[in-house]
């Protein structure tokens, strides 16, 4: 289990990185950020990029700042950064809850949020977070920059709207208004394993009722997404068991479940029902 040979590029500036990426992308070149997903598949030789553009030394990509009501997370910011609140208000608290479910501590010291988003594993907690909160992805290439909405970013299992020469340079997460409620729940076989289903619920309370609900589900479909049927079941309802159960049922019914050798569609729906309700209960 030794990776196949590759050429490593270690640019120091973003321009340099993008230029190299433009050159090597057609020759099976890839970005190496935290490497916590890429290196294992290289070890199994299921990925064998000819070039790796290692962005760990690129200046500026470690940006972590609040601008215009958004938390800006650069491509080099590690998961572990979020162990403590990295943004004011509920967003920082939310990220601190979510991050503890990402693999294990020594993975979080290396893996990056942007790397997770670009890798687009269906079970990724950050992909779920980005999809649920409506994050913006800032893709940069030698030919320019574009901002991609989360809804348009995730396309399928390990598949995104990023072009091969584009680097996900940063993600912008909207700050959450004070008083925003959130809850997260994940199901996995063992501690730290990939989620078999995971849910994130975010909403506000207006006049004692749920307002602006966002209910995302991951691990159940090719990519995480918000479930409008579940959000509809929450909107305007009093937060509590009845609304939560209705939302959970709606989510379980709405998904198009992933199946594998051990997990059939009905089990996946069972899990979605459970994690959605539990995420909502955790929001109280």
């Amino acid at each position: 289990m030794k990776p196949a040979p590759f050429v490593r590029h270690a640019p120091k500036t973003l321009d340099e990185a993008l230029k190299i990426l433009a050159e090597v992308a057609p020759q099976d070149g890839r970005i190496l950020a935290g490497g916590q997903s890429l290196v294992p598949v290289m070890a199994f030789r299921m990925a064998r990029p000819a070039h790796l553009v290692d962005i760990n030394e690129v200046a500026g990509l470690d940006k972590l700042a609040v601008e215009d009501g958004k938390l800006i997370v650069g491509a080099r910011v590690r998961h572990a950064t979020f162990h403590r609140p990295a943004a004011p208000g509920p967003l920082g608290a939310l990220l601190a809850v979510v991050v503890r479910n990402i693999a294990h501590y020594p993975i979080r010291t290396r893996g990056t949020m942007c790397g997770s988003l670009a890798n687009a594993d269906p079970a990724s907690e950050w992909c779920l977070t980005a999809a649920t909160l409506g994050a913006q992805m800032v893709a940069k290439s030698a030919s320019g920059e574009r901002v991609i909405a989360a809804d348009d970013f995730f396309e399928g299992i390990m598949s995104t709207a990023l072009a091969e020469d584009e680097l996900l340079a940063e993600v912008r997460l909207p700050l959450l208004p004070d008083g925003t409620k959130f809850g997260f729940n994940e199901f996995s076989r063992r501690a730290g394993d990939f989620a078999m289903s995971v849910a994130l619920a975010v909403y506000e309370i207006k006049d004692g009722r749920i307002a602006s609900p966002r209910l995302g589900v991951g691990g159940a479909e090719p990519h995480p997404r918000r479930i409008p049927e579940a959000e509809a079941a929450l909107d305007g309802q009093a937060p509590g068991d009845m609304a939560f159960r209705a939302a959970a049922e709606a989510a379980a019914a709405a998904i198009d479940p992933l199946e594998d050798a051990q997990t059939d569609a009905s089990y996946r729906r069972d899990l979605v029902r459970a994690v959605v309700r539990r995420a909502l209960e955790a929001s109280l």
């Binding site: 294992p40 199994f44 076989r189 063992r190 501690a191 730290g192 394993d193 050798a261």
Partner: peptide, 21 residues
């Protein structure tokens, strides 16, 4: 699988317990 291909080829598929379990 039915063709005799092993599907439990990583420690993310074959699951020895962690301290948590």
């Amino acid at each position: 699988d039915e063709t005799g291909n092993p599907l439990s080829t990583t420690l993310a598929d074959y699951l020895p317990p962690t301290s948590h379990e």
